[in-house]
């Protein structure tokens, strides 16, 4: 008996669609993740102000100083209360407040050093550390942050002869 030759051929081509999907997912994830790790902006609930102007075209050289609230070991704070981003009761525990620039925490001395270096980059009279600096900074403080911290930042800015200070605020929600 003549055995019939098998004519069935298997399709050995790769299905590329799932692979491309996964690659795209990875690219999107990595793009977002890398952006978040190097951001100037920390998560804070900004104070509300009707007259706050939209921060449309910020100076690219502007230094962002964040004042954010975080309890040690990321525990819940017994004092701070917010409702939909609106301050209900502020935290009065000094250890819970941090001055942060690009994700790193600074005390007043270190902040002064950073501001002096920043200020030196744009002095009105070049190479004169005693002339005012036109480098702007933005204080992006949580609505509940105690003013004492802002005072420290302003004092450091004053010592570094930086005078262009902006205070982060948000328009009230209706």
């Amino acid at each position: 008996m003549k055995i019939k030759k098998s004519t069935i051929t298997e399709n050995v081509g790769f299905n590329m669609t799932p692979m491309i999907d996964i690659v795209f997912q990875l690219i999107v994830f990595l793009m977002l993740a890398s952006d978040f790790t190097n951001t100037d902006i920390q998560r804070v609930w900004l104070p509300e102000a009707f007259s706050a102007v939209e921060d449309k075209s910020p100076d690219a050289t502007r230094l962002m100083v964040n004042v954010m609230h975080e309890a040690p070991f990321k525990q819940d704070c017994p004092q701070a209360k917010y409702d939909g981003g609106r301050l209900v009761f502020p935290c009065q525990i000094p250890e819970h407040w941090h001055i942060m620039i690009k994700g790193a925490t600074y005390d007043q001395e270190k902040l002064l050093q950073v501001l002096r270096v920043e200020g030196d980059l744009d002095r009105e009279r070049k190479n004169d550390p005693n002339s005012p600096s036109n480098r702007p900074i933005m204080i992006r403080a949580d609505a509940g942050a105690p003013f004492g911290i802002i005072e420290k930042i302003m004092e450091a800015a004053g010592r570094a002869l930086i005078w262009k200070i902006e205070i982060g605020a948000t328009n009230p929600q209706k």
Partner: peptide, 24 residues
């Protein structure tokens, strides 16, 4: 979702320090 820019909710208040007061 990732690329859309919603209307910016953040704003700022100018609070320029006087150049001739304070530390100097």
């Amino acid at each position: 979702m990732c690329s859309i820019h919603f209307k910016s909710l953040e704003g700022k208040l100018y609070s320029y320090l006087p150049k001739d007061k304070g530390m100097n």
